[in-house]
């Protein structure tokens, strides 16, 4: 029996939850745990992605307090049901909960997973190291339930469950002592689709030369209905917010097309985007490592290539 910690927002599962369920159902019988107000509304969709059973608890504490209430509840549930394995997303929420829980249970916490396999009685977990150039296989060595943190986009979410799941509504009292409280949520305004969902991403690096020059990428993105991403060099320089960073210490993306503009293609960047279906790179240095993984590479100056590209896209759209 495999458990998936299913993150939801106002009763809507986050994409990572559906990704985890899709993988989990190929490994065994799956139970999802969904916490917070409205979580019962998520049950059908969790079922449609592979959860046979969904445990829900609708207390507002799971939404308003960080980690502690979820850890308390999960620790009790694990003691009672003894699942073989629990999958969490390697997200802000998943990491906080899984790390605390692993210390509570004295169990293995395996992070950065991009794949899992059944191995004899247990499971082995595969994670990339050194910018994804090597894959490391790790096995848990504890008798307690091991916890695995899976990177977003490691698996594609696909429906394919057996329909309506069994729902168990939990009502045990929730502890609220000592947990940090969320007092306000701020959203940074971003035009266009989210990086995580976009079919096309236009991403800029230091080769753009200045923050102002990012304007042309935004223009291009608007024409293509694309999201705009950035390399860490650009984020560190303060040109763009961290929420746009792609790579090892930023987001992992898997668009249909990724257009890298003025990005050298360092391992720590490419680990976050090499799952794209097609990659286009524009860079003036023919030796830039990004060309080693680009399906189409243009050796040229961004100031010439990008404006022409925008013009050409507009011209083709007018036709």
């Amino acid at each position: 029996m495999i458990w998936v910690y299913a993150e939801t927002v106002d009763g809507v599962p986050r994409p990572i939850s559906l990704e985890l369920l899709t993988k989990a159902r190929s490994l065994g019988e799956v139970t999802a745990v969904a916490l917070g107000p409205g979580s019962v509304k998520a049950a059908d969709q969790l079922g449609a992605h592979g959860a046979k059973k969904v445990l829900v608890h609708e207390d507002a504490a799971f939404r308003d307090l960080l980690a502690v209430p979820a850890v308390d509840l999960l620790a009790t549930l694990i003691e009672k049901h003894k699942p073989e394995l629990i999958l969490f997303g390697m997200t802000y929420e998943g990491r906080d909960i899984a790390s605390r829980l692993s210390a509570r249970l004295g169990t293995a916490l395996i992070a950065n997973a991009t794949d899992l396999e059944r191995k004899g009685e247990g499971y082995s977990v595969i994670s990339p190291v050194f910018g994804g150039s090597l894959l490391v296989t790790t096995v848990p060595r504890t008798s307690a339930t091991p916890l695995v943190l899976v990177r977003p986009k490691a698996f594609a979410a696909e429906p394919g469950g057996e329909g309506k799941p069994e729902i168990e509504t939990l009502t045990e009292p929730v502890s609220t002592s000592k947990a940090p409280r969320v007092v306000r949520r701020e959203k940074e305004k971003a035009a266009g689709p989210r990086l995580e969902d976009a079919a096309v991403i236009v991403s800029g690096g230091r080769g753009l030369g200045s923050p102002e020059n990012f304007g042309m990428l935004e223009e291009l993105a608007a024409e293509l209905g694309a999201a705009v991403g950035a390399s860490r060099a650009v984020v560190d320089a303060g040109w763009k917010p961290y929420s746009m960073q792609i790579g090892q210490t930023g987001k992992t993306v898997k668009p249909t097309v990724y257009i890298a503009v003025g990005i050298s293609g360092a391992m720590q960047h490419t680990v976050g985007m090499k799952g794209a279906k097609t990659i286009v790179a524009i860079n003036k240095d023919p030796e830039a490592p990004i060309f080693k993984l680009a399906d189409l590479g243009i050796v040229g100056d961004v100031h010439k290539v990008v404006p022409q590209l925008i013009e050409e896209v507009r011209a083709r759209k007018r036709k």
Binding site: I282, V305, L309, E312
Partner: peptide
Amino acid sequence: AGTVVEDKGEGGKRV
């Protein structure tokens, strides 16, 4: 790796 071409004034069009 796929195709890498040098921009000779047509790079944007090629993309």
